[in-house]
């Protein structure tokens, strides 16, 4: 295999245009074979959605506002969940700056979830139940996780791999926008942008560089998350 270039995959989330439509959530379920848990399990706090839209209420009636924040694995450069895993089931890909999750290494100590400040890791409390024909919809590129295994957003690493291989076969560099995780692909308002921060020309770099609106979640913890959020902007209309 030829040497693949260093990357810094990042996601930029424009909170101004996230409409909370859940297209990303369903896209992620479809792409990554994330099981849907039953009503009883949701009540017990075991719902699984690798990407979720957190809705926060602000203010009191009648000046109420609802804010949407899509939260997925932040792919931290210094991820707190990584060192605590005793079996290297979660580990860092230095080349791509990805927080990898190796399902078949996981024994399910669930330490990573405790040490995950963003709470984006999901544990399979039971075996996933794809009833009847629903098994046919499973994406063969992604493992179906068994009970007792931790899972989380991978930035659709299977798509990254496929695109890199395609570029390698064509003997050309990977183009910006060629790797599109399922959530980014689906997002109607294009609130999600995916790209390589090592590429100075990429859309993601352009959005992040010098942007006054950008912030990262719990930046003070020093985990160096690789998901950038852009705050809501302001219109010219005087309020």
């Amino acid at each position: 295999m030829p040497e693949l270039p260093e990357r810094k995959w990042t996601m930029v989330v424009n909170l101004d245009t996230c409409t909370g439509c859940n297209a990303c959530v369903v896209a992620c379920h479809a792409e990554n074979n994330v099981p849907i848990v039953s009503e009883e399990e949701v009540v017990r706090g075991r719902a699984m959605h690798w990407i979720r839209i957190e809705r926060y209420w602000e203010g009191e009636w009648p000046d109420v506002k609802a804010r949407y924040i899509p939260v997925m694995c932040q792919q931290c450069e210094r991820a707190p969940c990584e060192p605590v895993c005793p079996v290297y089931a979660t580990l860092h890909s230095q080349r791509e700056n990805l927080n990898l999750q190796v399902y078949n290494r996981c024994v399910g100590t669930r330490y990573c979830q405790n040490n995950d400040p963003y709470k984006v890791r999901f544990f399979n409390f039971f075996d996933p139940n794809f009833e009847g024909l629903l098994k046919e919809q499973l994406n063969p590129d992604v493992t179906v996780r068994s009970a007792g295994v931790m899972e989380k957003c991978t930035f659709c690493v299977q798509r990254i791999r496929r695109s890199e291989e395609q570029a390698l076969v064509a003997d050309r560099p990977l183009r910006d926008g060629e790797v599109v995780p399922a959530c980014v692909q689906a997002c109607p308002t294009s609130a999600l942008v995916f790209g390589d921060l090592k590429d100075p020309e990429s859309e993601a770099t352009r959005l992040v560089r010098g942007n006054q609106r950008k912030f990262r979640l719990l930046e003070e913890l020093g985990a160096e998350p690789q998901v950038y959020y852009l705050q809501s902007g302001h219109s010219a209309v005087n309020e």
Binding site: N22, V25, V26, H29, A30, I36, A47, R55, A66, L134
Partner: peptide, 11 residues
């Protein structure tokens, strides 16, 4: 469709 049943309503 379980994906639509099991995904959270936004608000």
């Amino acid at each position: 469709q379980p994906w639509l049943q099991g995904s959270p309503d936004t608000n």
